[in-house]
Design a protein around this nucleic acid. Structure first.
Ligand code: ZN
Ligand code: ZN
Ligand code: ZN
Ligand code: ZN
Lengths: 137, 137
DNA sequence: CTTGTAGCTCTAGTTGCTAGAGGTGTTACG
DNA sequence: CGTAACACCTCTAGCAACTAGAGCTACAAG
């Protein structure tokens, strides 16, 4: 049995975050010591690692909750899990596209100022005038 | 003079958001009608467009506040404005890099499942085991 | 048996809005 | 001039996913 501090060190998840995941129903309410402190099993450590990995990949708490529910039913079809993964892939790709458009505008904005007073500053002018932009955003 | 609704339509910024910007000190407290309703000038519309454009480019409220303060002093050097723009560019590039790493992991995860039961699902296995990943994240 | 570290609960703060309740102002039409 | 429809007002609370702090209790080492 691990204390919450040991679990935190093992998984790299901060202590308040572990308690938050319990509150959100991602982690089951842990067993307690005589003195009301949480004690974790190896399986609970695995689950927390799963959660952390999914969070690192950008999945929402809600999506992770669904995946955990699915894992509890190994005989069911996995289409839902597969869909969650591809939706996340789509979402990440959409974000990348949007950020790339921002990158190109910001590169122009951040590299074209040759004035040294605010009244001549290209940054300020570019922000005031979207006409200078190449794309919508 | 524009009402808040007209200003909203002109700039594409929602009414509660305009009031929020006033609360955050990005917009000055607007002049009021007899009956206590906000009335805006053309300059205030320009400022709101500036704010919206900066937000669309991902700048934080805090950064925008600094840019507005700078604009009020046209004789000062613009180095601070230039720095804000390049920091934002750096931040956007860092996000893109991170998301690209996620994209490659997620592509693998989302396209490798050929089972149809949860117990054989590659998505679930991949999330449980970061060893299967190519990069850190 | 004391001391220091680790744990507990509960509340509030972060960012940038957005929604709703409950009330008032403004305007156009008849 | 009255009234209906619509726009606007303030204030509070909610979202996501934590994070920080106050004030308290448990546990392990010496
Ligand atoms: Zn400049
Ligand atoms: Zn633009
Ligand atoms: Zn699958
Ligand atoms: Zn991984």
């Amino acid at each position: 049995m691990l204390t919450i501090g040991e679990l935190s060190r093992q998984t790299g998840v901060k202590i308040p975050t572990i308690r938050y995941y319990e509150q959100m129903g991602l982690m089951d309410a842990a067993e307690r010591s005589e003195g009301n402190q949480r004690r974790y099993t190896r399986e609970e450590q695995d689950r927390l690692s799963f959660i952390r990995h999914a969070r690192d990949l950008g999945l929402t708490i809600e999506a992770i909750r669904k995946l955990i529910d699915l894992s509890a039913h190994p005989e069911r079809p996995c289409a839902d899990a597969d869909r969650i993964a591809s939706e996340q892939l789509q979402a990440v790709r959409a974000k990348i596209e949007k950020l790339k458009r921002l990158e190109s505008e910001l590169e122009r904005i951040a590299t074209h100022c040759h004035g040294d007073q605010v009244k001549d500053c290209y940054v300020i002018r570019a922000l005031a005038n979207h006409e200078l932009c190449e794309h919508e955003h």
